[in-house]
Design a binder for these strands. Structure first.
Length: 501
DNA sequence: AGGCAATACTG
DNA sequence: CAGTAT
DNA sequence: GCCT
């Protein structure tokens, strides 16, 4: 691993998240060099967007809870020198025209130069990736004691959080994984085979995590989850640089139209195909289709906004609004943003809230009041569901859900927002569920099942009965915290940022 | 060959 | 119920 | 498409 030089003239170190810093550099080094600011890479993105250097505070990475935070609070320099290198932790690409030496110092100190080279590389964002199904992960080796336990129970170790860096921006193996990710997107979408998509997602993210460049398929032999079929594809990629099958698919104009249609919130494979068969080819065409229902209508109306990711700094503000209003209406309320925000991602596809009240009663009717108030202050604009039917849950679990759109005063974009209100007994389960990510959820539910439980977002239910009439009980095992839930499953606690699987 | 998490809302 | 969503 |  290249060593990171933190000597002057380096003033800022950008990373995708705290773990990346922790795993890439010795803690002592970080402390010793506390004259350097450690920031999320959004800082430089936003700085470019705003045309000036942004204040560092909202972007700070808490590394040790100690020295980093108190360092250099105010002295915003007029130019920023970004240290580059340090494995894959930094945004600026190593290769390319910019002058970056091997030690990881940026020589000229020109903000624009570094940033512009970054922009070229960042590029692509698609539905199905980078959305809530955050499939951009990156791992560095981190052998702590929990690794063994996790391996034993789940057959894998938790990755260090990678936050929202696209795999393309950091991986040494994009020559392979770019194609695998495309296959994932296709199966997830047009080809309508989620299970197969899952395989590609898993393989691609595993390969993206490797710290060496793969030059031969045999290097992947020990990697589980790769079978005959994938191996053959990777061989072809290594041999020819491409995959015939993918080329053929992508050359098919129908495929791109379907993908376009499915990028609209509320349109899935079936509807996309239906619209294609009716002769539609563009989003403008779709707007003319009267049969489209509530969800896709709103999806079209807010198409461009919904596609935009939410920078973490903005998500922080969104959280303040919702939590603030909730507390004002219901003192003592438990309210927080979950989802990829809670997992520490640098940007989020949407923002999810989980709310409950410790008094065991106030959750009833809370959501309606909260939504009314948020609408009053013109924070919430449209609801994506028709709430008039009331909760439809079979066991009437008293879970209340809102899905809609919101906007900060003066902000550029409307944002997707989900709010769920739980009775207090189910709160930790709701939290666990909506913090995700989806892969993590699947694994712990699979584990729960193996251990004779059913885990969902409102409880942990022992499986009762045998043989034919095997079913789950109706009484959840009580758990007051997420930690307890994981303990009951025999798992060590994982911080939210450790759940980016 | 069958499972792959488990559930809510819409029309 | 099928479709889309989380 | 992988695992059991």
């Amino acid at each position: 691993m290249p060593t990171l030089s933190l000597e002057p003239p380096v003033t800022h170190v950008l990373a995708s998240g705290p773990d990346r810093l922790r795993s890439s550099a010795k803690a002592e080094d970080l402390e010793r060099h506390s004259c350097v600011m450690f920031l999320r890479y959004e800082w430089i993105e936003d700085s470019l967007k705003e045309g000036k250097l942004m204040p560092p505070d909202p972007y700070r990475l808490i590394v040790h809870n100690t020295s980093i935070e108190k360092s250099l609070t105010s002295s915003t320099t007029t130019t920023a020198t970004v240290a580059v290198g340090c494995l894959q932790m930094l945004i600026a690409p190593i290769a390319g025209p910019q002058k970056l030496n091997h030690k990881g110092k940026e020589e000229s100190g020109a903000l624009g130069e570094v940033v512009s080279s970054m922009i070229g590389k960042e590029g692509k964002q698609k539905k199905g990736r980078g959305g809530e199904s955050d499939s951009e992960e990156e791992r560095t080796k981190e052998e702590d004691c929990r690794g063994d336990i996790l391996t034993r129970y789940l057959g894998t170790t938790a990755p260090a959080a990678a936050d929202a860096l696209e795999p393309c921006s950091t991986s040494l193996n994009t020559h392979i994984t770019r194609i695998l990710w495309e296959l994932h997107d296709l199966y997830e979408g047009v080809l309508d085979d989620g299970n197969r998509a899952l395989i590609y997602r898993k393989v691609a993210s595993e390969i993206d995590k490797l710290s060496y460049k793969v030059t031969s398929a045999s290097q992947l032999d020990k990697m589980e989850g790769i079978g005959q079929s994938t191996r053959v594809k990777i061989k072809e990629i290594l041999r020819t640089g491409k995959l015939e099958m993918l080329e053929v698919l992508l050359a098919n104009p129908k495929v791109s139209v379907l993908q376009l249609f499915m990028s609209v919130w509320g349109i899935g494979p079936k509807t996309a195909t239906e619209m294609y068969n009716r002769g539609y080819r563009t989003l403008e065409d779709l707007k003319r289709e009267s049969s489209l229902e509530r969800m896709p209508r709103l999806g079209l109306k807010y198409y461009a906004d919904i596609l935009q990711r939410i920078p973490r700094v903005e998500a922080v503000e969104l959280e303040k609004v919702v939590v603030g209003v909730a507390k004002e209406l219901y003192p003592g309320v438990l309210a927080q943003a979950t989802g990829s925000f809670r997992r520490g991602k640098a940007s989020c596809g949407d923002i999810d809230f989980v709310i409950s009240h410790p008094d065991g009663n106030s959750h009833r009717g809370l959501l309606a009041k909260l939504v009314a108030r948020l609408t009053d202050i013109q924070f919430i604009s449209d609801g994506l569901q028709d709430r008039s039917r009331g909760p439809q849950a079979p066991g009437h679990y008293e879970v209340d859900t809102y899905m809609g759109l919101c906007k900060l005063q003066g902000a550029r974009h409307y944002r997707r927002i989900d709010i769920k209100v739980y009775p207090i007994r189910a709160h930790p389960f709701g939290l666990l569920h909506f913090t995700g990510n989806d892969i993590f959820n699947r694994r712990i539910r699979e584990l729960a099942k193996k251990k004779g439980y059913k885990l969902n977002d409102h409880g942990l239910f022992p499986t009762v009965g045998e043989g034919q009439n095997i079913r789950s009980g109706t009484e959840s095992i009580p758990c007051a915290t997420e930690r307890e839930i994981l303990e009951k499953l025999g798992m060590p606690y994982l911080e939210p940022h450790e759940r980016n699987w």
